[in-house]
Computed example of a mutant assay.
Amino acid sequence: MTESTPANSDITINELGGVTAIPGLLSGKVAVVTGGGQGLGLAMARSLVDSGAKVVLADMNEESLQAAVTELGGDGVATGAVCNVSDLEAVEKLAEAATTAFGGIDIWVNNAGITRDATIRKMTEQQFDDVISVHLRGTWNGLKVATALMREQDRGGSIINVSSISGKVGNPGQSNYSAAKAGIVGMTKAVAKEVAFKNIRINAIQPGFINTAMTAAMPQHAIDSKLAEIPLGRPGEPEEVASVVLFLASGLSSYLTGTVTEISGGRNICSRSPSPRRGDVCVEPRRGGPTFPSHLCRGGSPDHREKRPDVPAGTSGRCRSVGSVSHLAFCVPAGTFQPDGRAASARVSFSRFACRAGGRRRRRPCR
């Protein structure tokens, strides 16, 4: 396969106007991408290959690996290795395979991950340990092996750790995942300080709501709820995550290390949601609560609302609760109407998502 260069090929731009590849930018470089058989990992690998790098994919699914290698252009530019990243010996063998195939490693992307979602009440120790093992220990294993090899090569390198916006704000039902992703941020900064003198740069990314097979399977009301929190008003595309990885992998980011880049369309940039006021009623969203955009409430108070044409007349803005109110509850002024036409009442029967006072659940309006 002939490597393209800026002189004879155009920069690849996606439908949204984003740059997904710069031919020749990574010529002569070798990259390892864990979890690279599909999804975000494959998009990252594609961007690296299209920019001139040779890529070694690691994944637990051998069929996905073979299909991915073929899609990327075959053995001349890519190869695959079955690897359990939570096993240090397996990660060491992955590095050996990359060195044997392409002569070294310049870029390492710690992307492999799993989910085992459950509330803290129902989550088992095994579910917690499985997620921590793959995400946190897996990233540590990748860092340990990659930095050791890059120090021996004495030509520097770039390592990108894939965290998540969940590691910043936490997701209900994902205490294991959120903890692991938060841990990756601290690990990134710590190891970046240890190896910077060898010109080994380590940075993290935190993707938000991205179009993948997993998010596509979510119920529509859940998708709408997440989109309402994104100022850009749309989910991200895998290629938009890959373009940030490309930037961090290349010399374009030569003075960046220990950084964390959010790829979230602006989601969670607000430090505080509007506070509930006396007389507001808590409504559980799983039982008919408001589902219209959260940004209808602005200015730090439910009194400051910006109505939009797509919101039915008579509805109140959805204000995320804070303080004494459960994070899964919403507050709407008593007497106003919910989207389904039912009037909110101060006599709403609250469930476990109710307003709280002194740590106990109460059936009462927010105060």
Rank of each mutant, 00 (worst) to 15 (best):
Q66N: 15
I205N: 02
S349F: 04
S163G: 10
D129N: 15
P276S: 14
A313E: 14
Q220R: 10
Q206G: 13
D280V: 02
A81S: 15
A112I: 11
N110R: 05
G323Y: 07
R151I: 14
T115D: 02
L65D: 01
G39W: 04
L328T: 15
I13W: 05
A112V: 04
P238M: 01
K307M: 09
E71T: 11
Q127N: 06
T70K: 14
A344G: 06
D106N: 12
P309Q: 03
C319V: 12
V55G: 04
G156F: 14
A182R: 11
A78R: 03
D154L: 10
F353V: 12
T119E: 01
M150N: 00
A67Y: 01
L248F: 12
P276H: 14
T34G: 02
T79S: 09
E3L: 13
S349I: 14
P333R: 14
Q127F: 10
A216L: 07
S275N: 12
G138H: 08
V185H: 02
G279N: 05
E306D: 08
A346I: 12
A45V: 04
A196R: 11
P238S: 12
L328P: 02
V56S: 08
G167H: 00
A101G: 09
A334P: 00
I22G: 01
S164L: 10
S178D: 01
M44G: 10
I114P: 00
S64Y: 09
A179R: 06
R298W: 08
A346K: 13
S321K: 05
L26V: 10
R287V: 10
V311C: 11
G251P: 07
S321C: 15
A81I: 10
R116F: 00
I114K: 08
G300Y: 06
I11C: 01
V162F: 09
L94D: 01
N176S: 13
A118F: 09
T259P: 08
K226F: 09
I107K: 07
P339H: 04
A216D: 15
R364G: 05
H327M: 12
I269L: 14
T5A: 07
V241R: 03
V311D: 03
T124W: 08
A7L: 14
H295R: 12
R277C: 03
H135I: 05
D75A: 15
G113M: 12
L65N: 01
A68D: 04
W108T: 04
R342W: 03
L246W: 07
R318H: 08
K168H: 14
S9P: 05
A146N: 03
P231M: 07
S64L: 13
L328Y: 11
G18I: 13
N211R: 13
H221S: 06
G299V: 05
T212V: 13
A67S: 14
V30A: 00
L88P: 09
